[in-house]
Design a protein around this nucleic acid. Sequence first.
DNA 1: TCGATAATTCTATATTTCTCGATGTGTTGT
DNA 2: ACAACACATCGAGAAATATAGAATTATCGA
Lengths: 119, 119
Amino acid sequence: MTVVDHDETAVMFKALGDPTRLRIFQFLRCCPAQVALDDDGQARPADGPTVGEVCCSVFGLDRPTSTISFHLKELRQAGLIQMDRRGKHMILSARRDALARLAAFFDPGNPCCSEDNNP
Amino acid sequence: MTVVDHDETAVMFKALGDPTRLRIFQFLRCCPAQVALDDDGQARPADGPTVGEVCCSVFGLDRPTSTISFHLKELRQAGLIQMDRRGKHMILSARRDALARLAAFFDPGNPCCSEDNNP
DNA sequence: TCGATAATTCTATATTTCTCGATGTGTTGT
DNA sequence: ACAACACATCGAGAAATATAGAATTATCGA
């Protein structure tokens, strides 16, 4: 059984608790980055929305990129998104492990009363 | 397909984004209130943890009830919990519709790219 | 190397949030 | 009616957060 760390999970929820960040996250979730295989065999986002594109698509130019940058940092530090440099751009993508973790948190079949969650 | 209101969902996430509230919510989720049938045939929590019990179980007496009250109000206003008066006590319970909504939000099968979510 | 582009960091400010003690409200038992 | 109990609300203070503009870093192309 997966041990759920409440504090880490709370950080994720807090990150998603801001409407601006939630819109960004939903946008990224819906525009999955193409993946390419690394030299190591690791899958890495090879193409996808950039910071500017998110800023434009989600907010229609009426917000400075510094604000978006701030929110992207929050999402990244919460473990919700990944940012990979691609030349001058940064490629953004939602982290699937984060999505899986949150999905598991709300899974009705999840035995939440185990000692993992109620120490 | 259910239309997802981002702002309302963000309010839920914000409510769960505080460690104190997340612990309360998890506690309530794991201690489901017994339900009784109302005169109208409506199911209502008939028994379950009270404010004082939550305060004691989750925080071990080292917090004033006013603080817990503040967080319970946040959870209630976010639509995450229900509070029913039972004499001097308040019976607390996690709202199943909220849980279902959040579960649907993270459901991998959820077609998040529909116009519902990307206006 | 220089300029242009993309994005981050810095600084300041306004707002919100969390916390706690004191006070208030509602209910039960006597 | 009155005291005791459970909980909510109020008020204040400290801390965190969101926002935007200015300055900075990093990368690419000429």
